[in-house]
Design a protein around this nucleic acid. Structure first.
Lengths: 222, 222
DNA sequence: AGGAGCACTGTATAGATATACAGTTAACCT
DNA sequence: AGGTTAACTGTATATCTATACAGTGCTCCT
């Protein structure tokens, strides 16, 4: 059963009071916080929250209000957003096969999240891309590696870039000469890709800023 | 000023009560927990803790006991140990140049800690080793990379190992044939190392289980 | 039309709680 | 030898606190 807006307000207050004061509130403190004129108003709300299973009331005990785990599901939107942002700052989305046309960080492209903060890399990484193929082998970037990518359209000649070409994502070294862009592989078995910028477009998704191999449960040892 | 052993016990109880019950205890609850026969015993202890600045007492408020930040400095040894272990589980020591003779994880060898849990890798990593040299270049292990290492003396032929040879740490592929061990580089510019196990000893420090490049503030982009 | 749930007001009270006051015992410092 | 501090016992009480009981007005469902 869902909480009413008012009950969610009360729950938010319980959480805030606990976090800021270190103690759950009394009925009287709820009354003053919300401007009630009767302790029963607070009592009724607590009963409702307990009935819905988001808090536990200890009979007889003063301040005997306990926020249960599942209370997290009923956070106000503002608090939920803040939590999600905090979680995002401590982990990176892992992008596998990129669907044609879709933005690289759109939901269906994200396989999972890796528990590593983006600012572990410099400049900071915005996502991890699972490398496919051996075209950058001689740069130490192997098939299956996770490439840490700083999302930016700006790239200089010589940098290792993540580019989108005909709705395909590719990792290569960028070389710019006049109106010509070259995407150079680091493997003699592969041919460079040459793009005439006056006729074709090249979308730079980001820069390679790091690499992770062998994590997330895929063993390196066979 | 330091806490007395008894005061530390009381503080531990306050913390445990808060964590387990979600509410600080009343004087009466302290009394029953410690077998006191007078509420004043609890009151006196709380006053002492407040005077020493580890808790804050709110006059008049029931359960008005607040654990302050600096209370963490006065944790019991058991709790401190548990905390340190929890922190270690969420980060990996980075080992740079290894001092001759010293165990690989001894204090002076550890440069810093990297905020990544060891069980991010399978089997779990115990430390990260900063790779020196290009001898494993063709295996995608470059100079400066951080190699995630699972600490174990057991290695099978074909695995990438971290070995100690004449007090030098080296990363190579292991090959075992009868009483002969070979440490094979992955770079034609380097020669294999052959060890006759009946005459020389080879210490395996661990197995390579993963790799990180470009993190910890060292930019990949130039 | 009426029952149920929500969100309250208003009053009352048993008992939970903090806290003062008066002691005791032992260790430690000077 | 005397003062201070820690760690308690024992009693008492103002007041804080949970909670019961009796209502009101509103909305939503059937």
């Amino acid at each position: 059963m869902d909480l009413t807006p008012r009950q969610a307000e009360i729950l938010d207050f319980l959480r805030r009071h606990r976090d800021e004061q270190g103690v759950p509130p009394t009925r009287a403190e709820i009354v003053t916080a919300f401007g009630f004129r009767s302790p029963t108003a607070a009592e009724d709300h607590l009963r409702a929250l307990a009935r819905k299973g988001v808090i536990e009331l200890k009979p007889g005990a003063s301040r005997g209000i306990r926020l249960l785990e599942r209370a997290d599901e009923y956070l106000s939107e503002a608090v939920q957003l803040a939590r999600r942002e905090a979680a995002n700052e401590a982990s990176l989305p892992l992008v596998g096969r990129v669907a044609a046309g879709a933005p690289i960080l759109s939901d269906p492209n994200v396989e999972t999240r890796i528990p590593l903060a983006g600012d572990f890399f410099r400049p900071r990484a915005h996502f991890l891309l699972r490398v496919q193929g051996e075209s950058m082998r001689d740069a130490g970037i192997l098939d299956g590696d996770l490439l840490a990518v700083h999302q930016t359209p700006e790239a200089r000649s010589g940098q290792t870039v993540v580019a989108r070409l005909d709705d395909e994502i590719t990792v290569k070294t960028l070389r710019l000469r006049g109106g010509i862009a070259e995407l150079l592989p680091a493997n003699p078995d592969f041919a460079p890709i040459v793009i005439d910028l006056s006729r074709e477009s090249l979308v730079i998704e980001g820069l390679a800023v790091g690499l992770i191999r062998g994590g997330f449960g895929s063993p390196l040892i066979r």
